[in-house]
Computed example of a mutant assay.
Amino acid sequence: MPNWLEPIERGRRPAAVRSASQRDGRITFERGVERYAENHVSPKNGRPYSQTSRDNIRGNLLGGPLRLFREQAGIRYIDEWTDAHAVGYLHWLQYDMGRDSATIKKVRSQLRQLALYAAEHLGAQAAVGDQLERLRVSSAPDERRPEEPVLTQGEADSLLRAAQTARDRLLVAMLLYTGMRPSELLALHEENIRLDRVPPIVEIRGSVHDADVTKTEAGFRDIPLTIGQKLLPKLIRVHLADPNRPVGASRLFLSSRMERDGRVEPLELGGLRTMLKVLQRQTGIKCNPYRFRHTFCTWCADAGMHMLHLQQLLGHASSDMVAYYYRGKTSDAVLQAAARIRF
């Protein structure tokens, strides 16, 4: 029996396994996952998985941890994978490898869908069973990570000044002053910017994962571009008037790469993260898309915005998530809020 508690030597990748689509007339585990990722229909919206979802499935089910687990268990074919293996893997991944409960739940969902697909299309019934269906994931083992404080106004100004181009400055300002998700920001088209409205707004109608669907049903919304400041409309006009911007570009934010037909590719999430890492190195200020979202939420709440209004701006299905994003813990914010109360 393999010892699942035996420490794994960090920093070493298992030797790459070259997998054929079939061996001895049987479908390998790797090929089974590939077919599931490419052909399965999402249970949420009834549509094929997006490219981002397919990449996520491949990372979780073909990546190093599960490959190592299968190698130690001697599993090469999809019909050898059982629900007991899935449960054992999830326990090992959480309690020994230290993955948080949110990650475990995501992998559990993917393993459930893989089992259903394998049973229906690949003749592999062993992965479907009660053990995986009954598995409950506890958040108790999660490490308590220190919460990043919100950006100060001085830090926000420093990041805006350090941005090298009109595009990068607008990206930082949009994240900071609208609170939108990065996947929503990069999906924006020029027509989603309505400077003709009073006040000017940005229309959130989709994400880079799906042009017609946001993360939650509450995600379809309009966000004023003048919340707490008047900078955003000016930056948008400068960005759209940039002489280096391709004529007729549809997406609001473009990358520096060219497609085969000569068009400029849209900016992707990886490019946004790279840009923010450069800013972080230049300024020494830790910045990522969700620190901006926490900052926007906290600034608006401390300024007295109603919780339900803030929930709508952030695109949350419940006010519980607004409380999660709130990072105000200073007594000054409490005192200022109290000073506004009149009985």
Rank of each mutant, 00 (worst) to 15 (best):
M1K: 08
M1L: 09
W4G: 05
E6W: 06
E6Y: 09
P7D: 04
P7C: 06
I8T: 13
R10A: 12
G11W: 06
G11V: 00
R12S: 07
R13L: 14
R18L: 15
A20E: 12
S21T: 13
R23V: 05
R23W: 00
R26V: 07
T28N: 12
H40G: 00
V41W: 03
S50A: 15
R58Q: 04
R58V: 03
R58W: 06
L61Q: 08
L62P: 04
R67D: 14
F69E: 06
R70S: 08
E71Y: 00
G74F: 02
W81R: 10
D83R: 08
A86I: 04
A86E: 01
V87C: 02
W92S: 10
M97F: 04
D100S: 10
S101E: 09
K105P: 00
R108P: 02
R108A: 06
Q113R: 10
L114F: 09
Y117K: 01
L122P: 05
A127D: 02
E133A: 12
E133I: 07
L135F: 14
R136S: 09
V137K: 11
V137H: 11
P141C: 08
R145T: 12
P146R: 13
E148M: 12
E148K: 08
V150I: 12
V150Q: 05
L151G: 05
Q153K: 07
A156C: 06
L160M: 06
A163W: 11
L188M: 11
L188F: 08
H189G: 11
H189V: 04
H189E: 15
E190S: 02
E191Y: 07
N192C: 01
V202C: 01
I204E: 11
V208N: 06
D210R: 14
V213I: 15
T214K: 05
T216G: 01
I227P: 04
G228L: 02
G228A: 03
P233Q: 04
K234A: 11
R237N: 12
L240M: 14
A241R: 14
D242S: 04
N244V: 00
R245S: 05
R245I: 02
G248N: 05
G248D: 10
S250W: 09
S250L: 15
F253A: 09
F253L: 12
R257M: 07
G262T: 07
V264E: 13
L269P: 03
K277I: 01
V278W: 10
Q282F: 00
C287Y: 00
N288L: 06
T295P: 01
F296P: 11
T298E: 09
W299P: 02
C300P: 02
A301Q: 11
A303L: 09
H309Q: 13
L310V: 03
A317S: 14
Y324E: 09
Y325I: 04
D332V: 08
A339D: 10
R340I: 00
I341N: 08
